[in-house]
Amino acid sequence: MSKTTTGFTNKLEIPTPREKLHHPMDRYLRTERFPHIWCATCGIGTILTAFISGLEKSGLEQEKVAVVSGIGCSGRAAGYLRLDSFHTTHGRAIPFATGLSLGNPELKVVVISGDGDLVAIGGNHLIHAARRNIDLTIICINNFNYAMTGGQAGPTTPIEANASTAPYGCYEFPFNLPFLAESSGAVYVARWTALHIRRLAKSITEALLKPGFSFIEVICPCSTLYARRNRLGTGLDLMKFYHDNALIKHGADTREIDIRYQDQIVVGKFVDKDKPTFLQKRDKFLREKLGEKFIPYKGPQPI
């Protein structure tokens, strides 16, 4: 940061007090809850911004989009969005969202949560929701560790990376999330970093408009824990690392895009295919089997 630091020369440039400023994304935010809890140079806020841009471009009605989060740093995302938003139990965001989405099929339900929440404790739910092709968009914020609890190793911690429960470095094989999602049946799979902000927003728009189970992994800088423990600098240094080491490769074979410690990160849109959703398949199937006797689920009872 020091190289760009300059003096503050022109008095006229003193910015306006915040009370008078309305951020254009305010209508999607619970502004009364700001500033948010995320650390300085954490990327989750940036990903939230991308989500809002993607949501705006999708043209979906604000009231018909619900967000569900689990537990952890990323799990707090739901609490800052002015949408119907749910902060649930650790790992259970996807089954909760499954109930919400099937309960009211008019909704577009988005799950924003972390890698530990969605892939370790919630891993079973992730693969089954993908298998069933439930109409959900999953934004999995991967910061390579359990940050909220103090930087423990998780299912995505690369081999060699240091974590508080891997004090000599991590020696477990990590998950390759896009491969996991694709092989479980997801119809849309992408990976970006918090730096690929416009491409991420575009992916989010595509995923929101895609019926079925869409999965976007977003690599996110964790300054206070992952970066500090591994002496990688600040979140800004990690953003620079992504700038220098991310390779955009749309349609890459997901089997070949493992992430190694401080090595190249392949990003892009890997899967985009069509498949009937759980409800579409169910309704068509049961109508064939039961004929006139079949009564489709009509959503929640009227007021």
Binding site: T4, P15, R18, L21, C39, A40, L236, M239
Partner: peptide, 17 residues
């Protein structure tokens, strides 16, 4: 450009990029 000064945590992303 409008800056909400007291909401900033000084990450420097905007300056850098």
């Amino acid at each position: 450009i409008q800056i909400i000064v007291n909401q900033c945590k000084g990450c420097g992303f905007c300056v850098e990029y």
